[in-house]
């Protein structure tokens, strides 16, 4: 091969990748670097009138770490993430397993329902659920009152616990379909022969599930779990809209909404950037096992 054509062979693919790489560098890599700089600067009243930001070193990080509120929010975020991921996976797994036992028309009907819930835009879903839990005209209060409960004009978003219960219900409702479809697809791939062999060896239904079915869908299960953890860690829209609908912001902030209220609403971009670095660090910690797994595959 001539030197000229070898040069062409390497420059053509690089040229093809260039637009995508350049755009990602501009819209993601540059802000990431910029964020580190921002987190070392202070933004106050003077900066709103055009003064350049002041260098404060790691003062923003010091302030955050010293503020017990940050730790409350971080803890809340992590708990919310784990509870939601666990519930989503548990419920999704249960439905997926039972799906293999359903009469076919029931299964198809359930799949259609799940597909509809999955397709629902997050904002539309939030609006409808808010309406269902509305204090005055919500269907939930109407049904509970009709059943004899004392739910006339009950406000679901007033206390933090009840706020997070509603948020969890909505997040799980929206996330379960993906888990069910993925796990059901994996379950149908489990070899019937192996399961039958275990049955002949005298394994009961539960034993077959734990020792044969579960190990064979393990890779899919792991991926779904990690995706779910990532998604539930970054939950923003649901919390933000519920806060707008009547939650007490300070008692219900998760990291995403906290960063938003610090930076975009409060104008304190330095502290917000530092808090955002916490969010990125938390993502790395949660997804580290997954990234290690990927790196191993790449080698």
């Amino acid at each position: 091969m001539s030197a000229r054509s070898r040069a062409r062979r390497t420059s053509l693919p690089l040229g093809l990748v260039l637009p995508a790489a350049a755009l990602l560098a501009l819209a993601l890599a540059y802000p990431l670097g910029r964020q580190v700089v921002l987190s070392l600067q202070s933004f106050g009243l003077a900066q709103q009138f055009g003064a350049p930001p002041e260098w404060v070193g790691i003062q923003n990080y010091r302030d955050l770490v010293g503020d017990s509120y940050l730790w409350t929010v971080v803890l809340r975020t992590v708990i919310f993430c784990f509870v939601n991921a666990a519930l989503t996976l548990g419920i999704g797994m249960g439905i997926a397993v039972l799906m293999t036992k359903m009469t076919s028309w029931v299964r198809i009907a359930a799949q259609c329902g799940l597909l509809l819930a999955w397709a629902m835009p997050v904002v539309a879903a939030m609006i409808v659920w808010q309406f269902l839990f509305d204090t005055e005209y919500g269907a939930v209060n109407a049904v509970l009152t009709w059943w004899g409960g004392d739910y006339e004009s009950h406000s679901w978003l007033a206390s933090p616990m009840s706020f997070f219960a509603v948020a969890t219900l909505i997040v799980v409702w929206m996330s379960v379909p993906f888990v069910v479809f993925t796990l059901y697809a994996a379950l149908t791939q489990v070899s019937d022969d192996v399961v039958e062999a275990a049955e002949i060896d005298g394994a009961g239904g539960w034993q077959r599930f734990v020792h044969v079915v579960l190990p064979s869908i393990r890779p899919v299960l792991l991926v779904v779990l990690l995706l779910q953890l990532i998604w539930d860690l970054r939950v923003f829209t649901q919390i933000y809209t519920l806060q707008k609908a009547g939650g007490i912001t300070r008692d219900t902030n998760l990291l995403g909404t906290y960063i938003y209220s610090l930076g975009i609403k409060g104008g304190d971009f330095g502290t917000a950037a530092a808090a955002a670095m916490f969010m990125l660090a938390l993502t790395v910690v949660v997804t580290a096992p997954y990234i290690r797994m990927m790196l191993k595959q790449e080698d």
Partner: peptide, 15 residues
Amino acid sequence: QMIPAEGLFISQYKM
């Protein structure tokens, strides 16, 4: 794909 939008929107806003 793992970077959460919430972890970057402050600096994207400034940019």
